[in-house]
Computed example of a mutant assay.
Amino acid sequence: MEIRELQDALAAFARERDWGPFHTPKNLAMALTGEVGELVEIFQWLTPEESAAVMADPERATAVRHELADVFAYLLMLADTLDVDLAAALTDKMVSNARKYPA
């Protein structure tokens, strides 16, 4: 699926549940932060070696995939709500970073 298709699917899911009034930029940014926290929690007390091997543990791998999906979903919804083209924003940021941090 393309980014726009994912955003449309998420918007339809929210519409079907009447969640629109709750999907303000503030609430979506806060929810995104919460989900990032849940992702960080998986890695919190792991050594660097354990964190590099986290996907070898089926339970942890599932948890990582779920939290990454939650983070991605909220990021997509926030970008959609603010009418930000994420692909263009990332491309612009990469160009900016290349100028700021030359090789």
Rank of each mutant, 00 (worst) to 15 (best):
E2F: 06
E2N: 13
R4Q: 15
R4G: 08
D8G: 09
L10W: 03
F13R: 14
A14P: 04
R15K: 15
R15P: 06
R15F: 13
R15D: 07
R15H: 13
R15L: 11
E16M: 07
R17N: 05
W19T: 02
P21V: 05
H23V: 00
T24G: 07
T24R: 02
P25F: 07
K26W: 08
K26N: 13
L28V: 01
A31H: 08
E35S: 08
E35L: 06
E35I: 01
L39H: 12
I42Y: 10
I42D: 06
I42R: 01
I42E: 05
F43T: 04
Q44K: 13
Q44F: 13
W45T: 01
L46T: 05
P48H: 02
E49H: 15
E49C: 01
E49W: 09
E50R: 12
E50N: 07
S51W: 06
S51K: 15
M55K: 15
M55E: 03
M55A: 08
A56K: 14
P58N: 05
P58Q: 01
P58V: 08
R60C: 04
T62C: 10
T62M: 08
A63R: 13
A63G: 05
V64F: 15
V64R: 06
R65T: 09
A69P: 15
D70H: 11
A73Q: 03
A73L: 11
A73T: 11
L76G: 05
A79V: 02
A79Y: 05
D80V: 00
L82K: 12
L82H: 03
V84T: 00
D85I: 02
L86H: 07
A88R: 09
L90R: 12
L90M: 06
K93N: 09
M94G: 01
M94H: 14
V95A: 08
V95T: 09
V95S: 11
S96P: 10
A98W: 15
R99M: 09
K100D: 01
K100F: 03
P102V: 04
A103L: 15
